[in-house]
Design a protein around this nucleic acid. Structure first.
Lengths: 107, 107
DNA sequence: TGCGTATATTCGCATATTAATATATAGTTG
DNA sequence: CAACTATATATTAATATGCGAATATACGCA
């Protein structure tokens, strides 16, 4: 009974199921950035960043625009930024402070 | 620069990064259900369902209540149902029909 | 064309996820 | 306690994901 739509949704979630990709999407919530800018801001390895960006591309989370030598990335839909905002609320609702969260998720 | 919060968020996304778990969470959006009810409704194998429920438990997406022989599952926070609702909008915004979506995500 | 910069892809390897099967535990009832 | 129902866990094998190093591609410019 998990059908195609469930698979599509799971694909989106999987695209976001890595801390680096979450960081990338959050960075892009403020507007488009080139791959190089993302690498610099987030302190990523070039190849690693490129791989994560490939995942986000393949799951259609981001779209790209080439400007000369650079490739600019942007969120395909700001709703994904909203999703992240909802999650922020989720954390605040359930965990008084980060230590609790730490214990809850790791313990 | 992907920090702890990014990791926590990624954990939640990973919890939802499987079609069966998406189906479970959507089913629970309508209210608590026992493991057995979920298995029946979604047509799951018992062990498989239990493993996916274990993932949802470990990531704190669901909480459980034992009533005699049965274990009832409920969403820990309805915000996750909201997240899924947002995703539904996302799909409608970007894909005229399911065939397009199919092509986009698989092709 | 050849060089430099920006980005993407490939490869090898370690770790993680998944499904299926089998087994174990908790609770209920006789 | 034995038998039964509901749920959970362990094991194994297949597949997927993640990372760093190296290599490849794309573009702009001399």
């Amino acid at each position: 009974m998990p059908d195609r739509l469930h698979r599509y949704k799971a694909d989106i979630f999987q695209a976001l199921a890595h801390p680096t990709r979450v960081a990338i999407v959050e960075a892009l919530a403020g507007g488009e950035l080139s791959a190089g800018q993302l690498i610099e801001r987030l302190g990523l390895e070039q190849a690693n960043a490129s791989q994560h960006l490939a995942v986000l591309r393949s799951k259609r989370v981001v779209e790209t625009r080439r400007a000369g030598n650079q490739v600019y990335y942007a969120l395909r839909d700001p709703v994904l930024a909203d999703v992240l905002a909802l999650l922020r609320d989720y954390f605040f609702a359930h965990f008084a402070d980060i230590a609790d969260l730490n214990t809850a998720l790791r313990g």
